[in-house]
Design a binder for these strands. Structure first.
Lengths: 213, 213
DNA sequence: TAGATTGTTAATCGATTAACAATC
DNA sequence: TAGATTGTTAATCGATTAACAATC
């Protein structure tokens, strides 16, 4: 097991998807699956699947297929999903609340330890078990709690100042829902951007394409 | 202008990003930009930028650079962003409300014409100018309004039945926030999936990677 | 004219697909 | 044994980068 050489970035991009499908299969009580069958479900090819899995181990059985649980666990290990990095979320609007609930509910990768908003009316109310605090308290909170990741659900205009503060408090990774370009500002931070409007434009393009054929 | 031959799918995936950056530049009053400068801002390369633009026209000026407004408008045309496809949203929870507001606010590509939820308490309240209707009214609504796209913000368990109904009402494109695999069910629909948990896992992976170096 | 920068071709690199021997 | 399916190499395909003549 575990050779883990040359896991290319395109393989890594596919791992969360594999992981989701394998979890689903496991839930359905399916214990073994062939590259061909998995590919069919994932709209991929058997070649692709075997090539992908090949680069991080050999746990298929010739003539039989792959163990669903083994594969799932191996991908879980590679992605490091069992970790629990302390994270805070800033901006408890609709999107922020939705994301906070998802992070709390999934309870993988990250532990949500604080939620902040600048709206006085929200302070003191809760998301799950977590009190919403005022953004002014971020410094105090971060100085007393180790915070690895910040989830940014504030308007674009607020991100420049906010990210500066978080950076100064030692936060080096961001899940960024705004369109502010954090990579431009800081060189040594990890940023995962979610650009919902890009997704919407892609959908639009594909519909247009269909209509023009 | 407008040769539009061979716009490869990797170029198309980058267009929304170009579009965002060009809009931003335009707002800042920047009218011309070189491939080199644009690449720097987008963390790309000048070669990539020129190659990308080359496949849909020749409006750079040698020695000078590209017109920001011209490029932006051309990309707008290619993506077909000026269209206004009527769309409904189902599931007015936190994520649904956030998305509805974004679609209404952006007012590009799609016109949000209806919002549906099964929670009686929400019926009658509004998102923007739009009344929240009961999901039971979807049939009636779709029969009286042309609906091109459905935005699905309901729990995974509800999507199978819901998508079936929408398909029967003629809806052939979906912006899907659930993890239900619509492509498995229907062959001739356009589905744009948003898998926030994949994004979260990628972030997790990258943090782990950093910590292990 | 000299400097800058495009448009475009060629070279490189990487990712996907095909093929097949190994083996369960 | 025969059939199925992997692991892995080779072939193909596509995307990115480099280079440079054209030209503003």
């Amino acid at each position: 097991m575990a050779k883990r050489e040359n896991i290319s970035s395109s393989v890594i991009r596919r791992l969360p998807r594999y992981y989701r499908f394998l979890r689903e299969l496991d839930k359905q009580g399916i214990t073994r699956i062939s590259s061909n069958e998995l590919a069919k479900r994932m709209r991929s090819t058997a070649s692709q699947v075997r090539q992908d899995f090949n680069c991080f181990g050999e746990f298929g059985q010739q003539g039989i297929g792959y163990s669903v649980a083994e594969l799932r666990d191996e991908i879980e290990n590679i992605l490091g999903i069992k970790c629990h990095y302390p994270a805070i979320l800033v901006g408890a609007g609709n999107i922020g609340t939705a994301i906070a609930n998802q992070v709390i509910f999934e309870n993988r990768c990250f532990d949500l330890v604080g939620v902040f908003d600048k709206d006085e009316n929200k302070i003191g109310s809760k998301i799950g078990e977590i009190n919403i605090r005022h953004t002014d308290d971020i410094e105090n909170f971060c100085n007393n709690n180790s915070v690895v990741t910040a989830i940014l659900c504030v308007p674009k205009g607020a991100v420049e100042e906010l990210s500066e503060r978080l950076y100064n408090l030692g936060v080096r990774s961001f899940w960024n829902f705004s369109h502010y370009d954090l990579n431009m500002k800081f060189k040594n931070v990890i940023v995962e951007n979610v650009h919902l409007s890009d997704s919407l434009m892609q959908l639009c393009f594909r519909i247009n394409q269909e209509h023009n054929n």
